[in-house]
Nucleic acid binder design. Structure first.
Length: 453
DNA sequence: TATGGTAAAAATACCACACGAAGCC
DNA sequence: CGGGCTTCGTGTGGTATTTTTACCA
């Protein structure tokens, strides 16, 4: 820390609000985010104490410092000593937590300043910490509906995928604990299982197995959530599945060979895939190819809620945002998976899948992506109708009355090759939106080829 | 394996203006 | 409170330009 609050400019910044892209002191955090119901939904986390510019996602127990993903990776992955440091997952909170609640969340922090009693603890202002899918922490305000909905669908998808042996392969791999980390759990809080270290470092699949995620998973509630999801967004589960299919999620699943035994990595894969698919389901607009920016943002702006995972936060942000679907469609997720191991997926011997499998997966992904059709959705048909008849010069609209080189209302002259079974002939015709009108009246020939003049 | 050149593909910018949305009276 | 008016910003499609990617020597 050491940087000042973006709001008051006076106090030391403590938390980072991603929605506001601002570092705030606790006092301003409480004031700003108690303004209205929407601002209360902003998820915040601690500021990285190393770069002071990114939201922290982990806390190094040895160094007693909160770190963003980049700093965590830089500081721990590069050194032998640092790589053995134990780290705790930092998670987001929303609402207006009181000092007592903050001290519960950040029990490891000894210097949390008193923020006084929250001014908005009653009603929907109460602190909300996203719990796991069992949903027992959903506040009365239900201000995490979106997240829970997303999680619920992910679970459904996972169940389905697991039951069909698609993504887990032949091994009965337990659901990785990253599934749990995919939801917001406070460090050291009483809400969750104890903070976990990453499987790739200190924990094998055995421990993941003990998480009992499946046991705690209530299918009925998931169904309920999915129904709500449909009501809210008017997208059926079948639609969602179709989107999964269309958006290369099966390509991700098809990379089961690539996942190896690193459950952490697997969790990230499936989670992001499901989330992305969900985002697509949410997005009413047309799809576009993933932009490089989105890919970069995914890599350089780690989500504090889902540390060292693939950018699964996209699903949540996409629920409420108006951003284009294309930005989140792939979010480079698939690309990231295919292009190499992400930094949060530490290399391990079990991960040495055959190169041929990887190549084939890459090939399948590319083919699928290439074959993907991006239908453009016209929001205003009247404007489209207007544009369709507007005159242009080199594709650009021209002022009324100015010279033009293209008028959609004037049909093109085309040459058509006709066939009357035994011989070919050629004639001049006019091409318009309604079809081809052959000059000279009706010609009892079949049109074989058309050339626009 | 790295590098440079070329081709192909993809992304972006540009234009005018009707119209939706919001604000005002 | 509803209707009329004004103002502002947005979206529309075809083409050129720019950027990115792929491929080869």
């Amino acid at each position: 820390m050491g940087y000042t609050c973006d709001f008051c400019g006076d106090q030391r910044s403590m938390v980072y609000c991603r929605s506001d892209a601002a570092s705030l002191c606790l006092s301003c955090d409480r004031n700003v985010h108690s303004a209205n119901a929407l601002s209360r939904r902003h998820s915040r986390t601690l500021v990285c104490e190393r770069c002071n510019s990114q939201p922290a996602c982990v806390r190094c127990v040895e160094e007693r410092i909160s770190l963003c993903q980049n700093c965590d990776w830089t500081g721990h992955a590069g050194s032998n000593s640092g790589s053995t440091h134990k780290r705790q997952t930092l998670n987001c909170y929303s609402g207006c937590p009181s000092a007592a609640e903050l001290s519960t969340i950040w029990s490891f922090l000894l210097d949390v300043p008193s923020v006084g009693d929250s001014t908005c603890q009653q009603g929907m202002g109460a602190m909300s910490i996203t719990e796991n899918c069992s949903g027992n922490s959903q506040g009365p305000s239900g201000n995490n509906n979106n997240q829970d909905i997303a999680i619920a669908v992910e679970e459904s998808d996972l169940q389905k995928a697991d039951s069909s042996n698609v993504w887990m392969g032949s091994t009965s791999m337990p659901l990785p604990d990253t599934r749990l980390k995919n939801v917001d759990l406070p460090v050291g809080s009483t809400y969750s299982t104890p903070p976990k270290l990453y499987c790739s470092e200190t924990k094998g699949t055995e421990q993941c197995e003990d998480d009992g995620f499946y046991e705690d998973f209530d299918m009925d509630e998931v169904d309920l959530n999915i129904e709500n999801y449909e009501e809210l967004f008017g997208v059926t589960l079948n639609d969602t599945e179709q989107l999964f299919e269309n958006d290369g999620i099966d390509s991700l699943f098809g990379m089961k060979d690539m996942s190896g035994a690193d459950s952490n990595c697997q969790g990230a894969h499936v989670t992001e895939g499901s989330s992305i698919g969900l985002v697509n389901a949410m997005q009413p607009t047309c799809s576009n190819a993933p932009s490089a920016d989105s890919l970069m943002s995914c890599k350089t702006e780690p989500n504090p809620c889902f540390p060292r995972q693939a950018p699964s936060n996209l699903s949540f942000s996409g629920l409420s945002g108006e951003s284009g679907a294309g930005d989140y469609q792939d979010c480079g997720a698939s690309s990231m998976l295919l292009m190499g191991e992400p930094p949060w997926c530490s290399p391990c011997p079990e991960n040495s899948f055959p190169l041929t499998s990887r190549s084939s997966a890459v090939l399948r992904y590319k083919e699928k992506k290439k074959a993907r059709k991006f239908e453009k959705k016209v929001r205003y048909a009247s404007r489209k109708a207007r544009a369709d008849v507007r005159r242009r010069v080199k594709g650009r609209f021209v002022k009324a009355g100015d010279a033009y080189d293209y008028d959609p209302l004037i049909p093109d002259e085309v040459f058509v090759i006709l066939n009357n079974v035994n011989r070919f002939s050629c004639c001049l015709a006019l091409h318009s939106g309604d079809g081809i009108a052959v000059l000279g009246g009706f010609v009892p020939f079949d049109i074989v080829e058309v050339y626009v003049r």
